[in-house]
């Protein structure tokens, strides 16, 4: 397996990406790059194209115009290498509720070609890190919403990806769990060196220092630190800046 692009390549590069669904454009000439270990919020209202972007990155959708590279590997031409470097937490829960936490993680490990022993030891390390090692034999059905999300993140990290995609991961969680999850994701960048792309439509999940990409109707309207965005537009808060950007677009 060629490892040529090396560790210096950006975790994610999107270049001139366009995608239409039933002749209706969903993404238009989108370009962006995320450095290794960077935390980036993809902010956009419902229908902005966030999930579509994630589906294209993970190749659940195909044949777009433009290029996507993960750690330097093209998702179409070098799908195996690119896929091995992505961890995903989908918007809908994808853990099997009837299986135990350990069984769910073992399944994921196998899908990434790990032996049972390797998958178990990696799963164990992740569960210890998120403080759910005691629940390894518990059926997922019996976990709280916040715990399930943390298990899904743990699962997404088992194969040590360069890039972790989170698609509105706080849907359905209470305020405390949401805060914990945002904190957790920031820690991952700092401690594990994984780049995180966090899609959301909730402005209160953005911290002042976060880099924010504002996506609306398939186009990137802004890219920069959250606090600088308000300054640039001459408003006090990110919320106002967001309203201004999206409002201008509507007008």
């Amino acid at each position: 397996m060629s490892e040529v692009p090396g560790e210096t390549a950006p975790a994610l590069e999107v270049d001139g990406l366009s995608f239409a669904y039933d002749a209706k454009p969903v993404l238009e000439a989108l370009s962006l790059a995320i450095a290794a270990g960077e935390f980036v919020v993809l902010l956009g209202p419902n229908g902005a194209g966030k999930t579509t972007l994630f589906s294209l990155i993970t190749r659940l959708h195909d044949a777009p115009r433009g290029e996507i590279r993960i750690g330097g590997f093209d998702v179409r031409r070098q799908a195996v290498q690119a896929h091995a470097r992505i961890g995903v937490v989908f918007q809908q829960p994808t853990l099997d509720p009837d299986l135990s936490v350990a069984q769910n993680l073992a399944y994921h490990g196998a899908l990434h070609g790990m032996s049972r022993r390797e998958a178990d030891s990696r799963a164990e390390a992740q569960l210890v890190r998120i403080g759910l090692a005691e629940q390894r034999r518990t059926r997922v059905r019996r976990l709280s919403g916040g715990q399930r999300r943390r298990v899904e993140i743990a699962r997404g990290l088992m194969h040590t990806p360069r890039l972790l995609l989170l698609d509105e991961p706080t849907v359905g969680l209470d305020i405390a769990s949401r805060r914990d999850l945002v904190e957790h994701a920031h820690q991952l960048c700092a401690e594990e060196g994984v780049a995180v792309l966090w899609a959301t439509h909730l402005i209160d999940e953005v911290r002042p220092g976060d880099r924010v990409l504002v996506l609306h109707r398939g186009r990137l309207l802004a890219d920069g630190p959250a606090d600088a965005l308000g300054e640039r537009l001459g408003v006090d808060s990110l919320g106002e800046a967001f309203d201004r950007l999206v409002g201008e677009e509507r007008a």
């Binding site: 659940l60 995903v88 994808t94 099997d96 899908l111």
Partner: peptide, 11 residues
């Protein structure tokens, strides 16, 4: 959901 998990495997 589980199909998505399957299809993001590198195989």
């Amino acid at each position: 959901g589980s199909m998505r998990v399957l299809l993001v495997s590198p195989f």
